[in-house]
């Protein structure tokens, strides 16, 4: 046996203590940055109202919006729950469909040849244009909004996932071959995990645009949800109510993005 001691003691890049304190510092810095951005935006908002003497039916003050948020808290929460359901279910449906089609295109070349042009062409139809058709087919309930959100994320998820699956590093496939992996084993143990970072990019895009699909669906026809609430408030000139709903919607999207991003970073630590 050769003397391994000098090699064995080669320092690992695993510097736990240093890493943790750096992470902590980065997290604190992000928090401070977030608070500063929020304060600046609120100040700008208030400043805009003062500078241009905007009436409250054009732009309500942050305080009046906060007041509405507190006063109409139970109603806002009910409608937020509806929109959140639409977004989450739309994401689940869109992601499953995207993964399914990406796998089909990878495994069956003729399907890819026929499906890819259809997928690309389908993007030429604006999703807002088909919203009324979806209302007609799926009624004014939650289903049409779920499908809207799913359709809007389907393309980016499918393309990201497909790109990830077909760009498995050549060396990994060579290794699997020399280890006598079957095609199925290669897919499960190599190609799918290797595609996760690309799929994660697709999911990040999806969580940002899925709320657009859900709210657009609510605008076209609905009886609940934040989009519905905004339309109703707008029609009654209750602009501060509209802004309260808009604020919650933005908050919902931001929270969804950061929770997803955090979860993906935890689940795919080799991503970066």
């Amino acid at each position: 046996m050769p003397d391994l001691s000098p090699l064995a003691s080669t320092p690992s890049r695993h510097q736990h203590t240093g890493q943790k304190s750096t992470q902590h510092r980065t997290r604190s810095a992000s928090l401070v940055r977030g608070v500063i951005i929020l304060c600046v935006m609120l100040a700008l908002w208030q400043g805009l109202i003062y500078a241009f003497a905007l009436p409250s039916f054009i732009l309500p003050t942050p305080l009046s919006v906060l007041d509405r948020l507190v006063a109409r808290y139970p109603i806002l929460l009910d409608h937020t729950w509806v929109t959140a359901q639409e977004i989450i279910l739309g994401l689940l449906l869109g992601l499953s469909m995207g993964l399914f089609f990406a796998l089909q295109m990878l495994l069956f070349k003729p399907i890819k040849r026929w499906l890819l042009p259809v997928l690309i062409a389908s993007q030429a139809i604006p999703v807002f244009a088909i919203a009324p058709v979806l209302m007609l087919w799926l009624d004014y309930g939650i289903a049409s909004k779920v499908v809207m959100a799913a359709i809007i994320i389907f393309f980016p998820v499918t393309t990201c996932c497909y790109d990830g699956l077909r760009n498995t590093p050549r060396g990994f496939l060579d290794l699997a071959h020399t280890l006598q992996a079957s095609r199925w084993q290669q897919l499960i143990h190599i190609q799918l995990p290797a595609a996760l970072p690309a799929l994660a990019s697709g999911i990040r895009v999806a969580v940002v645009i899925a709320p657009i699909g859900a709210v657009a669906g609510e605008w076209v026809g609905s009886s609940a949800g934040l989009g519905y609430l905004m339309l109703q408030a707008n029609a009654r000139m209750m602009i501060d109510d509209m802004f309260a709903a808009l604020l919650i919607l933005s908050l919902l999207s931001v929270v969804l993005y950061f929770v997803t991003d955090f979860t993906l970073k935890r689940a795919i630590p080799w991503e970066h």
Binding site: L4, P11, H14, P269, W270
Partner: peptide, 16 residues
């Protein structure tokens, strides 16, 4: 034998 028993649970990207 290759002197890496201590990092058996580590992920590869943490190694040199």
């Amino acid at each position: 034998q290759v002197g890496l028993l201590a990092v058996r649970h580590a992920l590869p990207q943490t190694l040199s």
